[in-house]
C-alpha cells in the first residue's frame, strides 16, 4: 500500500467515523432525544396509530393489579405524571425496582380503547441515594413522603417534553 493510498484510506475512515458520530448525535437530537412522553402529553400530541412510543411517569399507588387476558396473567397499572394518567397492560417480566410510586418508562402501543399495550417496562430511579434507615427516620418525622398520592412535587423527575433550561 503506497503512502498516498494509506492517506486516502485514513481520510475515508475518518470521514466515516465522524459521519457515524454526528449521525448518531443527530438521530438522538431529533424527536428521539426525548426518551419518553408524559401521560398529559398523550392527549395533546397523540402518537400515530400502530406506532410504538414510550410513556414515562410514576406508577399510581393502588392501581397495580393482576388480571387474566386470554388465559395469561397480565399486569395492569396506571402511569401518572400528577396531571393525567394512562392505563397500561403488560404481560412480561417487571424490573426489580417496579413498585407503586416508582418511576417507570413504558414502551407500548395505543389500543383502540385508549389504553396502552406495553411491550417493555423499564424502571427509572431518581438521583437520590439513601439507606433504608434514613428514609424510615425521615418518614417517621414526616419530612419526606415518597410516592405519597398525589406526589407533593408532581413527578419532578419527569420533565416536560420541551427542553427546559438547566437548573440555575
Amino acid at each position: 500500500m503506497t503512502r498516498k493510498h494509506r492517506r486516502l484510506v485514513v481520510l475515508i475512515s475518518c470521514l466515516f467515523g465522524l459521519g457515524a458520530g454526528v449521525g448518531l448525535t443527530l438521530t438522538a437530537l431529533s424527536d428521539n432525544v426525548v426518551f419518553f412522553v408524559a401521560p398529559s402529553d398523550l392527549a395533546s400530541k397523540p402518537p400515530r396509530a400502530g406506532r410504538s412510543f414510550r410513556i414515562g411517569g410514576l406508577v399510581e399507588p393502588g392501581s397495580v393489579s393482576q388480571i387474566r387476558q386470554d388465559g395469561k396473567p397480565v399486569m395492569q397499572f396506571r402511569v401518572t405524571d400528577g396531571k393525567a394518567a394512562a392505563t397500561v397492560y403488560y404481560a412480561g417480566v417487571l424490573p426489580d425496582l417496579f413498585r407503586e410510586g416508582q418511576g417507570v418508562v413504558v414502551l407500548g402501543m395505543l389500543r383502540p380503547d385508549g389504553d396502552i399495550a406495553a411491550s417493555e417496562v423499564l424502571a427509572k430511579h431518581d438521583e437520590t441515594y439513601m439507606p433504608p434507615e434514613v428514609s424510615d427516620a425521615l418518614k417517621k418525622a414526616g419530612q419526606w413522603a415518597p410516592a405519597a398520592p398525589p406526589p407533593a412535587k408532581p413527578a419532578m423527575d419527569f420533565r416536560p417534553a420541551t427542553p427546559v433550561p438547566a437548573k440555575p
Binding site: 426518551f35 438521583e127 423527575d157
Partner: peptide
C-alpha cells in the same frame, strides 16, 4: 451535551446527584 443531556431532555438516566 453529555453533561446537560439529563437536564435538557427526558432520559432514562437519572439527573446528577
Amino acid at each position: 451535551i453529555i453533561k446537560f443531556s439529563v437536564d435538557w431532555w427526558n432520559t432514562l438516566h437519572q439527573p446528577a446527584s
